[in-house]
Computed example of a mutant assay.
Amino acid sequence: MPTGIHDFGSYLPGPPVPATFFFTEEELASPIAANPLFKAPTTRHHVTSERAADMIAAAARPMFDRLGTEPAGAVDLLITNVMLPDHPITGSGAETARLLGCTPHWIIDLHNGGCASFGYMLKLADTMIGSGAVRTALLCNVQNGAGQFFSQPHVRKSPYAAVAGDGCGVAYLSATGGAQLMGASVIHAPEYAPDLGLSGTRKYWEPGTEELMVSFPPDKLGDIIERGNRLVPEAVTDVCKQIGVATEDIDVLITNQPNKMFLQNWRQALGVPAERHIDSFDDYGNLYTAGVPVTFERALRAGSVADGDLVVFAGFAHAGDMASAAAVRWSG
C-alpha cells in the first residue's frame, strides 16, 4: 500500500510585519531593494516568544481535530526540521511529542535539508512506512529565524533580512488512505556545503556582542544563483520521470519561496504556468524550511487544489548542497 498524506496544518506567529520594519520608504525605493534577489515581500510574520515546539503544536492540533483523531497513539514517527532548534543539544522533537501527548517509536530531529527538507522528510517517512517499521508519521517544518535572527538591530538592515518570515507547516502521513505519494527525489551536493556560513569572527556559542547572520561568500553568489536555478528543475524532472509524466502535466507546483526571481525561473524551466505555481512570497516572505508545507496548506484552504490534481513539492537548500522533489496525487 503506498504512503498516503492525509492533511496539512500551518501556523503563522503574530500580526503581519511590514517592510518598513526593515527599511524606510526611501530605502525601499533604492536600486538594491528593487533587485529581484532582495525585493522585500509586502508582509511577513515574526516569532516573538514562541518555541518551535509550541509552533508545531499550534499547527498540528487543528489538523488532528479535522482528522478526528488524537495524537496520542497516532504518531509512530515524528520528524522535525527547525531553523533554530529550541535547545542545541536536545532539539525540538521530544518537547513536541510531550506537548502533543504522543510517544512515537521514532523521534528524528532532522537538522539538515533546510528549504529542501520537506521532500527529504517525505522520502524518509515513505521508506520507513514501506519497510513496515512505522505506520504513521508527523512531519514538522519550522522557520523561526526572522524574529530571532534577522531582526537584530544591525542585521535587519541587511538586504537578506527583509525577505525572511516565520511560520510552521506540518503534514500527517500513514500506510493507509490519504493522497498517494507517487515518488520522491533527493539530490545531495555536499561539495557546496561550505558556501553557507555565519558572518563574523566568533563561534556562535562564544560570548560576545557581535551580531551573527547567514553569510554567503561574495565571489560565490553567481554560482549559488546558478545552482538554485538548476537544482529545483532537476529534482522535479527526476521525480516526473519516475512516475512517467511530463513536467508540463503538473497541476500544482509548490516550491520553497526564496524570491520572485527563482520562482519565475523554475516555472519557466519546467513549463508550468504561473497560475499553477503557487506563490506565497508577498504574504509570508521566505519561510525557508516551512515554505513548502505552509504554502500548500494555505492553497488547500483557499480552494486552489482539487481532488485528482498532480501536486509536486520541491525546493533547494542553503547554497545548493541539497534539493528535493516529491509527487502526490491529491485527494482529501
Rank of each mutant, 00 (worst) to 15 (best):
G200C: 09
W330G: 14
T20Y: 02
Y284A: 07
E191L: 14
S185I: 02
T127S: 15
V311K: 03
F22I: 04
P41I: 08
P217N: 06
G285L: 06
P85I: 08
S280C: 06
T237D: 13
V170S: 12
G222N: 07
A269S: 14
A133W: 01
V214Y: 01
V311Y: 03
K241L: 15
H45D: 15
P36Y: 09
E211N: 09
P153T: 10
K123W: 00
V252W: 04
P71M: 12
Y284V: 12
F64Q: 09
G4W: 04
G222F: 07
L300H: 01
A193Q: 12
M83P: 00
D7I: 03
E95I: 09
P88F: 03
S280Q: 04
G119H: 06
C115A: 15
I79P: 13
Q264A: 14
A319T: 07
A137C: 09
H154R: 13
P36K: 12
G244T: 07
E191T: 11
P217E: 01
T103M: 02
T237E: 11
H6P: 13
P258K: 05
T80D: 01
G222L: 08
V245I: 15
G9K: 03
D7P: 14
M128S: 09
W330Q: 12
A235D: 02
T96N: 06
D219R: 05
F23V: 10
F216N: 05
N229G: 15
V47H: 06
R276N: 10
L99D: 05
P2R: 08
D249L: 07
G271C: 01
A53M: 00
A326P: 13
A193H: 06
T42F: 05
V328K: 09
L67W: 00
V292Y: 00
H46I: 05
G14I: 07
E211I: 06
Q268R: 05
T103L: 01
A302L: 05
P233M: 06
R156K: 15
D7A: 15
D283G: 07
F23P: 15
A40M: 12
N259Y: 10
L99V: 05
L67A: 12
T201M: 07
T80W: 00
R44D: 12
D65G: 10
K203V: 04
G68T: 09
A40G: 14
T48V: 15
P88N: 01
G320H: 09
A306T: 10
P258A: 10
E226P: 11
D307Q: 11
N35D: 15
A179F: 00
A164F: 10
A164V: 15
T69L: 12
G197P: 13
A74Y: 00
A179G: 14
A325P: 11
E27S: 05
P159H: 02
P41A: 08
E210R: 06
A97Y: 04
I89T: 07
P153W: 03
P233K: 04
A171S: 14
A53I: 03
